[in-house]
Structures are given as C-alpha cells and as structure tokens.
Design a protein around this nucleic acid. Sequence first.
DNA 1: ACGTCCGTAGAAAGCGCTTTCTACGCTCGA
DNA 2: TCGAGCGTAGAAAGCGCTTTCTACGGACGT
Lengths: 359, 359
Amino acid sequence: MPVTLSDVANRARVSPATVSRVLNGNYPVAAATRERVLRAVDELDYVLNGPASSLAAATSDLVGILVNDIADPFFGIMASAAQSEMGGRDGALPGRAGGEKLAVVCNTGGSPARELTYLTLLQRQRAAAVLLTGDAVEDPAHGAAVAAKLARLAETGTRVVLCGRPPLDAHPDAVVAALPFDNRGGARALTAHLLELGHRRIGYVAGPAERITTRHRLEGHRAALAAAGADDARAHRRLTVHGPYDRRSGYEAARELLRRDPDLTAVVAANDTVALGVCAALREAGLRIPEDVSVAGFDDLPFSADAVPALTTVRLPLHEAGARAGRLALGTEEPPEGRVAEVAAELVVRASTGAPRSG
Amino acid sequence: MPVTLSDVANRARVSPATVSRVLNGNYPVAAATRERVLRAVDELDYVLNGPASSLAAATSDLVGILVNDIADPFFGIMASAAQSEMGGRDGALPGRAGGEKLAVVCNTGGSPARELTYLTLLQRQRAAAVLLTGDAVEDPAHGAAVAAKLARLAETGTRVVLCGRPPLDAHPDAVVAALPFDNRGGARALTAHLLELGHRRIGYVAGPAERITTRHRLEGHRAALAAAGADDARAHRRLTVHGPYDRRSGYEAARELLRRDPDLTAVVAANDTVALGVCAALREAGLRIPEDVSVAGFDDLPFSADAVPALTTVRLPLHEAGARAGRLALGTEEPPEGRVAEVAAELVVRASTGAPRSG
DNA sequence: ACGTCCGTAGAAAGCGCTTTCTACGCTCGA
DNA sequence: TCGAGCGTAGAAAGCGCTTTCTACGGACGT
C-alpha cells in the first residue's frame, strides 16, 4: 500500500539504487535521469521511509535538544535559536539532501531520570546530535551516568553539545563543545552592584540546592560579599533560601526572608521569574521597590524589561548561545579551542534597584 | 562493534526472537528465560536499534508536537502537559514495553512551510502520533495542504490530534480529536465586561491578520459590541490594529491607537504578552491603568497574575487541554463524541480593568 | 496409555533502504 | 584502431529487528 523506493524506481524506469542516489544527492546522476526520478517522486507523492533509511545508513537526521522546562522561556529561547539553525530553508525536501535535521526538543522537567531516559531514546534512534541545555544536577552518581551515556553516544557518532551547562567531569572528550554560562561572574557583578549602592542586608533566593547553576551563582554572590568584607557565614545562611525556578518559589521565599530579617534592603533572586514572585510578595507586604527594597533577577528574559519596575538583572545571551550550540551540533561551526567557550554574562541595571533607605 | 539483538541472544543462550519478545513484552516468555535475557541486556548494556525496530514493526514510538513558538509559554504549557502524559514513568526501559513514547516538540515558528516540512519529517519517521497546537493560518491553499498531509498520516496509522486549533475543513476524519478553544466566547465575555463597566471607546490590538484565532477573537469582540448596540464598523476599523503575538507589537499598537483616538478608555489585546506591551506604552504616555485606561489580555499565562496591575484576561486551561490532547494522541482516552470538544474559556477579572474616567 | 492442547521457543522471511562492487558504454590519446 | 579511463547505472548484499509459522514437550482428558 505505501509507496516505496522501488515503486518510484519502476515508474522512473531506473533501479532503486539510482532513486536513492538522487534523493541523497551524494553521487553523480545524469541530469535527465535525476529529472525523471524527481518527477516520479512527485507523481507518486513518495515519502522516504526514515527508519529504513536510518537503518541502512546507520545514522539518522534526528537531533535532540534536552531542556529542563519547556514552559520556561529561558529554555524556549535557546531551543528555538538552536532549532532555527538546523531546520534549513523552508520547504520539505523528499530526501535528506539539504542536510535537513529533525530538531526536536525533549522536556526533562529537570528530572535526572527523565534526562537519562531521553538520552537512551535518542541513542536508540541513532540521533545525529544531542544538545543538552541549562542546569545540571550536582549528583555524582547521576553525573557519571550521564557522562557515560554521552560517551557511548559519542562513540556511535552522535555529536554532543552542552549549552549553558559546564563541561563533563568524567568523559570531557565525549562532547563536541561546551558553552557554559559565566554564572559566577554575573552573580558577582550583580551583588557588587548592590553593595556599591550601599546595601548590606541582602537576601538571596537561590535555585534548587542540588543544581550546579545554583551553586555557581551563590559562589559569585559570596565572592562579591567577601570582596566587600561583608561575607559573614551566619548571616549568609540566614539570608539564603532555596527553591525551584518559579514565580511561586520567589513569592514564598521573599515572605520567609522578610520573616527572618524584616530590615533587609535588597533581594537577589535565582532568576527573573523568581524575582517577579519576590516583587509580588514585597509589594503585598507594603514595601516599595526599589525605595524600600531593591530586587534583582538573572537571565534578562524578555519580560524583565517590562516588569514594573523594570528589573535589574544579568543578561545571558540565550539566543546567541543557542544558535551557536545548534551550529556546533550540526558541525557547521568549528568547536572552540579546548572545546569549551564560556558565555559572558552582563549586568543590566534597571529600575528595580536603588540605594537603600537608611543608606 | 555495537551490541545487537543477536549478541544478547547468544549471551542469554536463546534465539533473537525470544530477546525481541522479552523486550517488547507482547508474547509469553517463561519467567526464567526472561530473567536470563534481561540480565544479558544489562551486562551488555544493550540499547535497541530504533530504526531497525521501527522498520520491522512498521511503526515507531515517536510522537511529534508542533508548536508555533517554543519560546512562548502559551505553547510551552500545552507541550509540557502533553509530553508528561507520554513520557511514562521515570526510568529508561531497554525495550518499548511500557508504551513509552518519544514525545518531541517541533517549532514551526508560525511558518506554514515549516509546518509542512515537519509533518513530512514526522511522516518519514512513521510517527505514532502528531499533535498540532495553537493557531492556524487561514490560507485555503495551505489549509488544504496540511489537511491532505494529515490525511496521509492518518492512513498510515499516525494518530492526529488538534489542540487549540479548529477541526479540519478538508479531511475532518483524518483527525482523532480536535480540542478547539472557545476564543469567540472568551473574547465576547471580555468585551462584554468592559462594556458593562461603561467603556465605549475600546481599542483592539488583534493578532496577525491571517490567523484563525485572530478572527475568532475579533468576532467575539464585535459580537459583544453588537449586543450592546455599539458595533459601528467605521469606529471598529479605526480602533483595531493587527500585529504579531509579542510584547513589542502591543507596545507599538498601543501608541498607534492612542494616536488614532487619544480618548479611548480601554484596550483589549490579542493575548497577555501583547497586553504587557500595551501597558508599557500607556504608562509611557503618562496614563494610569486602570484609572485612565483599562487593559485586558487573553490566555491567562502565569505572569498575568503578577503583572502590575494584575491583568484582567480570559483563562484558557492550557495545561488541561494539553494533557488531554496527549492522552488522546496516545489512545489512552476515548475521543469525544463527534471528535470535537470545545475547550471553555473563562473570564478572569483582575485589577487592570475598571470604570472609565468619564464613566 | 494415547492423542490433544497449551505454553514456550526457534527458524526464517522479510521490512525498505544504502552502498559497495561490478558493468556498461563512451570519449580520448596514442 | 584499440585500450585506458571516466561517467553513469544496476545487482545484490546486508543493516538489525519483528513476526509469522513451525516444532517441541509436557499436562491433561478420556
């Protein structure tokens, strides 16, 4: 019932081999023959059988993009940028001539187990490339498992790229390239900005405790405090609250921080979304931003500029990084020296931070 | 080099057929044998060859979710809900026993051509199901092309589900189920709310002109106006501006509307994101919300409740709809009567709308 | 005790492609 | 004029799995 290569071959009065070659465009075929084949393809409305093709060729045009939360624009922006590097020009080719890839995003929900599941599924499909984005869990066992999995993928020809995620401990060379974000530097600049304004009691709403990004941003924060001679471990612990990367977490954390220290003058949030929750809680407590309390986020997502007040944050060039990661995954761009290229983070000062009251 | 089914079979001292049966779990295998096979799988770290498996079985466990804009939470929420219905329990199975699907999201960027490309790619992969989400372009040619493509997919066993998109004109039975949103009703309720408050000069920032959702929301809007005897075609045209679904579009449209009618007392936006842009422009023009101008959005995305002021909008149960669509795609849930089930939209009144000044 | 079934496992035929390897003209250079 | 060499196309051997169809025992009924 379904149209096969041979059907096309028969109609074009050539051998299946020739049809295959026309479709894949990697072997000289006389123009007239090609024409004939293409017409037959068209007339029969033939669509290549992907599994058969992948089986015979031992590769596929599937590219997996793993994200922690597809509903979070942080990932959406990277994924979309990466994907647009791959989709190729508009228009559906019948063969896989154009280097077209089926770029496909997989939502792990931040679960290590699901991450592994997806990697296995992609391995099963003989994916051409895998792109892991964003934060990683800092669990040695899981880290090792992921690294091992990626190593096996690499062995069988899958190109592995890391975007916004630090290089692997275990099999660093399984990866084509890693583009980690400078979370430490960004966080440090952000807190330094607050310190300069005169803030000393700075609450910190950190991300999930076991995540590597959380740790890096926290380290940057503390580094800034230390540089200002303000890094008191006890106070630090008291003014740090952990939670997931969502609005609600920010809301609750802010209430908690207010409870612990009603006199804090600034709150730094794990990211912009969390910062919005923080703002909501502060406002509800009758505090003005930034007159009573300054608030800062991280990532500089599109909505941050529109928030009221506009959010001071740290810009991560998500689009650029995603696009580059996409090219790296495709092999369109040369990997950086040493396979690692840190992505710079840039402080963006807006209206949500100002000098403290008693400042 | 790579481990194959036969390797596992050899090691377990059974035939390849038996290994396959253990992995697929659809044929009785004695417990002891199964055990032996599973151990061999484990020891060899075997991963099924997806293409080979799909080729032989003539189906795959790939499920495609098409979205217009992956960086927009509107789609992210639906996709994530759908995907979580499919991923199955955590943990990677070596076979495809658990009915695990590789749910995968494809970003069309709203381009009809890319939509078709992805459908072809999924057809090529013999996808088990395809889920189209969100708005569709209202171009007869493209609509027909998509419908034809979906019909072919359906013929070869792919389950097609529409979520937030109206049923097909052309091959309505190619689709397992369609879950269109009640955009008309929602828009109508929203505008009715504004009219009740006393507004008469209501600006409308519509979505892209050629999209079906745009038309439906606009129709609801006009229906409400008509019901209040306020549907003047000339005024309507003057107070309606089209633009893409993004923040910037709202910003610019609001400035344009203000230029056209400095005395308008309310603005309805295509969706919440656009509404935020509208708010920014109004604020910049020195207008207070809602004292000077009321603003309303659509969709009720998570950030809308946190906006300042909190956004009056129309809630679409994106998560529920996405999850249901996911189940429908999997065949876990019975399709609704007539294959179409409209998803209700609910007016959510918050702080961004109030009585007009002169009201 | 013999024939029947049921439960379980193996043999083998593909699934629809890709890709060597081979073969067929031609055109050229000598 | 003949052989080398190039450009082009076909034959056929798989790729690694699924799935009939067949076969083998042992339990069971009579």
